[in-house]
Write a protein that binds this DNA or RNA. Structure first.
Lengths: 156, 156
DNA sequence: GCACTACTGCGAGCAATATGCAATAAGACG
DNA sequence: CGTCTTATTGCATATTGCTCGCAGTAGTGC
């Protein structure tokens, strides 16, 4: 991956809709269950940074007795398929989103504000990391902490 | 903070030895207990990235019934004093080290290898973050994930 | 020494996530 | 359409990393 915006699994590339994802699941020998269907739709609908619990709530709005562990298991599977990824934005729960929408995050340690950051911002770091350490960074998984503009101003 | 290498709390600056730390603790109205003394020594001795559990083990080698919760409480206090910081290098427990030795981390998602990264590597990102978002990054808290040279080579 | 209270050990509690198991239901096949 | 296979589920329970309340202990100023 690195800063390259394409997804890891070639089969997951070009997955543009919930139906595409479900097709992919089927092609991998998976079954399209109602829980899975609802979860995938929740991922496409509620575009953003949803925790497993958020997603569970969204799914349970349609099918109340889908269990949280089912959500975790399905997120796990979708992650293996390269369709979704999770990111850690702080000390709380992880947030899940479509892999195709991967981007970096800045999170304010003081107020918790979060900024979505285009990958291009990391290209310099990406280059030096590769040059100095042969390391291919993936700037999406962990947020970069710090202090947002507002808090920096207030503290000064 | 940002990429600035000095520590946040001016009182914690120039703390170069376990005794210095204990003095600082005393000056802040804290007591120098045996558990605390051992913990601070463990932090100075086992230079590196130790989890709370590691540190507990080191302390317990001398005083077997120091409880893990005491370790956590003391680490917390030392963190407030600006003497130590913790970093998250992956999905496991946090690692603690002296704040004066702050540095960035690259962690390989595949093999778990960790590279300590000088702050200078982040100066470009630091600049663009400030310029584009007014955001002062602290590149120490969360590791940057990715793939190390060995794994990148093997995968290719 | 003595009192005062920070600190400790302990056990319980918590949030986020994982897992073993028996019951269920996709979906391939006839 | 019925049957069979087995992926998937719901549930309960476990695990991990960390936090908290409490009653007892032990540093420190006097």
């Amino acid at each position: 991956m690195g800063t390259d915006p394409t997804t890891r699994d070639p089969a997951a590339a070009g997955v543009g809709s919930a139906e595409d994802v479900l097709d992919l699941v089927r092609r991998h020998g998976g079954r399209v269950t109602s829980a899975r269907k609802l979860l995938v739709h929740a991922l496409f609908d509620g575009r953003g940074h949803q925790s497993a619990e958020d997603l569970a709530a969204a799914v349970q709005a349609q099918a109340p007795d889908v269990h949280l562990s089912t959500i975790y298991r399905n997120l796990d599977e979708l992650e293996h398929l390269g369709v979704v990824t999770h990111a850690h934005l702080g000390h709380g729960p992880a947030t899940y989103h479509l892999a195709a929408e991967a981007h970096g995050h800045f999170v304010c340690e003081e107020c918790g504000a979060m900024v979505e950051v285009p990958d291009t911002l990391f290209s310099g770091l990406s280059r030096t990391a590769r040059a100095h350490f042969g390391f291919e960074i993936d700037p999406h998984h962990f947020a970069v902490l710090g202090r947002c503009a507002a808090c920096t101003a207030r503290d000064a």
